[in-house]
């Protein structure tokens, strides 16, 4: 998995067109971000990336790029 694949998964989850979500996008400013999509995001990372990221780790990520780095790092460590 690379950054581009992860961005595509985010596009699918948030139903956004490619390019709307970039590594620089602030996590909580993704269009459609809510407590529901937050849980959806945890589920997507668990299902598609095979890693379980605690909610506080995700919320401490400022941007999509920070989150992607966490996911890829945790995958590499697994």
């Amino acid at each position: 998995m690379d950054q581009q694949t992860f961005l595509s998964l985010l596009d699918e989850l948030f139903e956004t067109d490619a390019g709307v979500i970039t590594p620089e996008t602030a996590l909580k400013e993704i269009p459609g971000w809510s407590s529901l999509t937050f849980v959806g995001l945890i589920a997507m990372i668990d299902e598609e990336c095979g890693v379980t990221l605690p909610p506080n780790i995700i919320l401490n990520c400022r941007t999509v790029g920070d989150l992607t780095a966490h996911v890829l790092q945790k995958r590499a460590a697994a």
Binding site: S34, S35, F38, V39, I42, A43, D46, T52, P54, P55
Partner: peptide
């Protein structure tokens, strides 16, 4: 949080933490 209106006599649920616990 998230515009919900609640008192300390009411049940509080952090859905994301519940989901995380369940996955673990």
């Amino acid at each position: 949080e998230n515009g919900n209106i609640r008192s300390d006599d009411d049940l509080f649920m952090n859905g994301a933490e519940v989901f995380m616990f369940t996955l673990c």
